[in-house]
Simulated assay, not measured.
Amino acid sequence: MTIYYNEIFQFVKKNVLDREVAQDITQETFTRAIKSADRNVIENERALLYRIAKNVMFDLYKEKYKVDKISFEEDYHIDESDNIEVTMIEDEQTAFLLKEVENLPTKRRQAFTLHIIDGYSREEVAKMMNITINAVEKHISRASNQIKENLGKKESDNDK
């Protein structure tokens, strides 16, 4: 299994762009793979390692996403803006958008978040999610359309 270490490390490093984080993710990948090998017969070690590496990267992303939400809430409490009404409206809109993103189907949400929020290219998202670039584009397009549609519904509900 260790013969794939450098390959997995390069794959992770290419996706996270931070050498130390890539080393941590690679180490966690091999730790999980070894635990899995103790419980199950592994037919394709390389495929298992790639799958685990992607899962660890997504776990890290989810953890990071939660931290961003907490810091956003902290900013709300310490904001000393002169115009509280504008701040409250902006916060409400941001909260609504976050809720809409969270309500997207899993693959659609992942593609949308990785590309639009985190700034990864469509090609990078395709590699991270192990899907085609065309599929990434469809997920992003459908996510955008779904969010726009729900925003339109919210505005029409507010007009009533």
Rank of each mutant, 00 (worst) to 15 (best):
I133M: 08
P105Y: 04
K14W: 07
K66D: 09
M57L: 11
A126G: 04
N6K: 14
N158R: 14
E74M: 13
E85N: 12
D24T: 03
Y4Q: 04
Q146R: 12
Q146G: 08
M88P: 07
Y120N: 12
Y61P: 00
E124D: 13
E124L: 06
K14V: 04
V136D: 02
V56F: 04
S144Q: 09
V67R: 09
A95T: 11
K127H: 07
R32N: 11
K148A: 13
S121T: 15
N6A: 15
A33G: 12
L17N: 15
D82F: 10
Q10S: 15
M129A: 07
N15R: 06
N15L: 13
F96M: 11
T26F: 01
L151N: 12
I147R: 07
I25M: 05
D68W: 05
I131P: 00
D59A: 12
D118W: 11
H115W: 04
T87N: 06
V21H: 10
A37F: 05
S81V: 06
V67P: 01
Y4R: 03
F30Q: 00
A47F: 01
D24N: 14
E45T: 03
I3R: 13
E92Q: 11
K107A: 13
K99S: 12
K107R: 13
E123V: 07
E43L: 09
N150I: 01
Q146K: 12
H115V: 08
A33F: 10
A143Y: 02
I84N: 09
N44T: 03
S156H: 10
V41Y: 06
I70S: 08
Q93K: 12
K14I: 04
